[in-house]
């Protein structure tokens, strides 16, 4: 029976889609049967981030409205046989789906998968409520910035009110160089402010840009720091006990200099 996990944030553009694609891929690499669902109806994106945009025939709304069977709409990943995507509709709006639809949909999928990851739209309105309706667990993505953290706090409260809590936190785009200069909130500070358990921290990583350009998950790229962070988060989701460490500038530098020679050590 699948665990249904919604990835949300409040503020837009902090990395929900990137996180959904990479965690889904990492979980499938480790042998889980995974479906990712793009719940951002009208602003379809998970398909391009996963590199599956050319294979879409039917979408989530087609399934909900009975024009297609789930089996027909699910798109198989190019590389991983146990990874699927259910794309969002691009030409409809959020009101095309209800919370009850999302509960029915996820329940129909549960027996086929180990993980169902739902990529939530930004905001706290209907799209957010629909995306968490079928969830067993909620992950909140934030960046270490005041506006993102403030919005994340709002979402923490809403997730609790919807009895989907406690949510867990993923801090994305952390720049350790800025943190050590005192010019960016650290993971510990964000965790202290929000009082939510962290599931992991993902560094700011230029390779996210190039892997996203190609439609390949960063977790396939062994030199991507963010990719390795996502692999660790996936393993924690799977119940493995992997300590969360912030990259220190030292290990970061050592890693860049000697990583090729001595193996990569920095861990997130």
């Amino acid at each position: 029976m699948a665990r249904v996990i919604t990835i949300t944030s409040g503020k837009g553009g902090v990395g929900k889609t990137t996180t959904t694609a990479n965690l889904g891929t990492a979980l499938a690499m480790h042998g889980s049967r995974v479906a990712t669902i793009d719940a951002d109806i009208g602003l379809r994106n998970l398909d391009v981030v996963m590199g599956l945009e050319n294979r879409i025939v039917y979408d989530l709304v087609d399934v909900v409205e009975g024009r297609a069977r789930l089996r027909q709409a699910l798109i198989k990943d190019k590389r991983l046989p146990e990874l699927y995507l259910l794309p969002a509709a691009q030409t409809r709006d959020k009101d095309a789906v209800t919370a009850a639809d999302m509960i029915n949909l996820t329940n129909e999928m549960r027996s086929e998968f180990d993980f169902i990851l739902i990529d939530c739209p930004a905001g706290i309105e209907t799209g957010f409520r629909n995306a968490i309706a079928g969830a067993d667990e909620v992950l909140i993505v934030t960046t270490p910035e005041v506006s993102a953290v403030r919005d994340a706090d709002r979402v923490v409260g809403l997730v609790e009110a919807a009895e989907k809590g406690p949510a867990r936190l993923i801090i994305n785009r952390l720049n350790q160089r800025l943190v050590s200069r005192g010019e960016m909130l650290s993971m510990d500070e964000v965790v202290e402010i929000l009082a939510v358990d962290p599931l992991g921290v993902v560094p700011e990583d230029e390779l996210i840009v190039s892997t996203t350009n190609r439609g390949e998950a960063a977790v396939f790229n062994p030199s991507s720091y963010a990719g390795r962070a996502y692999i660790n988060i996936a393993r924690r989701l799977n119940g493995e006990n992997i300590p969360i460490m912030e990259l220190t500038e030292q290990t970061n530098l050592m890693d860049r200099l000697f990583g090729g020679l001595f193996g990569r050590r920095a861990r997130t």
């Binding site: 005192g182 960016m184 650290s186 500070e189 402010i193």
Partner: peptide
């Protein structure tokens, strides 16, 4: 004071009011 410290203090205050 480094800006992260300022960010933290501002956030703590604004969140108590939000909550």
């Amino acid at each position: 004071p480094a800006s992260a410290q300022i960010a933290k203090e501002r956030l703590l205050t604004v969140l108590v009011h939000d909550r």
